[in-house]
Amino acid sequence: MKKRTKYLMGIGSIVVATLIFVAADHIDAPGSMGTSADIADYFAFEPTEGANETTFIVDLQSNVLPDLAYGTFDEDVLTEINIDLDGDLIEDTVIQAIPRNGRMFFFGPATPGQTGLNGPVLMDAALGDVEISDATAIVETTAAGVKLFAGPRQDPFFFDFFQFNAVINPAMDAAPRGFLPSGEAEDTFDGANTLSIAIEIPNSLLGTPTATNALGITVYNTWVTTNRKQ
């Protein structure tokens, strides 16, 4: 398998994104761009302050611009959410998601048999499944209180892509210019979609974190990988 990885460090009572995490990393390597192996964004947070659940959202990139066609989840791509509980940056538990016949199947959270390598699908740790939906979002809630979603969602970032390129490469424009004020900037990705996988899961199923961040706050350290079948 080939693996793509994106990291997110916790900074909250459970986990919240920090400034060291570069979100919206659209269109990664040529080998994964335009497919659901390309990780666009990754979010992990408490759904409400003081909640006993954690929400994980993985945005997998298809094509970016609104006038391009979007693909579907690739059945040869396994998405894996890795969670470190003790601060050694080695996954202690994982959640996996893989699509089959219009549904997204989830496995875990479970201790991986191997760490740092591409392990098999955790077939003996089924978590639940949900129909892959689009215009009308379908959310499945399991008996354990886990909420699951999979399907295309609008790109969450406002970004004036062409103006950004004019700023970093003045040769593209007649004269160097700065960023435009909010009333003049264009959201290049307005109407564009990513392929999203969302899980809201009780913390009791994830395990108790003992890792601490730079502020001394107990957190889950978490990152996401995509693994393509070879």
Rank of each mutant, 00 (worst) to 15 (best):
P120D: 14
L60K: 06
T54Y: 00
I95S: 04
N101Y: 14
G71V: 02
Q114Y: 10
G87W: 03
I83H: 06
N101W: 05
V58F: 01
I81T: 07
N118S: 12
N82C: 11
D59Y: 10
A110M: 09
L60F: 00
N63V: 05
T93R: 14
M104C: 07
G116N: 06
N52F: 10
F106T: 11
N63W: 14
M123S: 15
V58E: 01
E49H: 10
A51S: 15
F56G: 02
P109N: 07
E75A: 06
F73L: 12
Q61E: 13
I95A: 03
V94R: 07
M104G: 08
N82G: 00
E80P: 00
D86V: 00
A69Q: 15
Q114M: 12
R103V: 04
N52Y: 09
A110W: 05
P99C: 06
I90E: 13
M104H: 01
I98N: 08
G116P: 03
V121T: 11
P112M: 00
P109M: 04
F107V: 07
A97F: 03
L65K: 12
V77W: 06
P109E: 08
V58Q: 01
G119L: 02
L117I: 08
E75H: 06
D67K: 06
P66M: 01
G116Q: 02
R103M: 13
R100E: 15
Q61I: 04
A97D: 09
L117G: 08
I83T: 07
Q114L: 15
T111C: 12
I81S: 07
R103Y: 13
G108H: 00
F107T: 02
N101T: 10
I57K: 14
D74I: 01
L85P: 03
E91M: 08
T55E: 08
E53H: 07
G50T: 08
D92N: 13
L122G: 01
